[in-house]
């Protein structure tokens, strides 16, 4: 899994490139948390344009980051989901706490 970061105002955008499973989850979690802690971040957007696979490990990663961001008074969004990832998030009821957007720009404008 490759991660690309972008900080716009107080929002951290993470572009995930690859497959998110139990194996890659730890590294993803650590890298995002490091950014959140070091860069005065409020909101977080997961840009999933290039995420080719995700299993339930991804739910844990997103909910874990939500807990962190929520404590900081911010919001979490996901953008550019493929139907499969959408299905998993829906099953987990994740949209009760996290906003879904069609594009990264829409997420940035509305968080």
């Amino acid at each position: 899994m490759q991660l690309k970061f972008e900080v716009l105002n107080n929002t951290l955008v993470v572009l995930l490139n690859g497959e998110l499973d139990h194996h890659s989850a730890e590294e993803v979690r650590e890298e995002i948390d490091k950014k959140i802690e070091s860069q005065n971040i409020k909101n977080l957007v997961f840009d999933l344009t290039n995420m080719r696979f995700m299993d339930s490990s991804g739910i844990g990663v997103v909910i874990g980051r939500y807990k962190k961001i929520n404590k900081l008074g911010g919001k979490v969004g996901v953008a550019n989901l493929n139907p499969h990832v959408d299905k998993i998030f829906q099953m987990a009821g994740i949209y009760k706490i996290i906003c879904k957007f069609d594009t990264k720009e829409e997420a940035l404008a509305n968080l």
Partner: peptide, 11 residues
Amino acid sequence: ELERSGMGFTV
């Protein structure tokens, strides 16, 4: 403690 979602069997 591993930040697992507990959704494996449900999936």
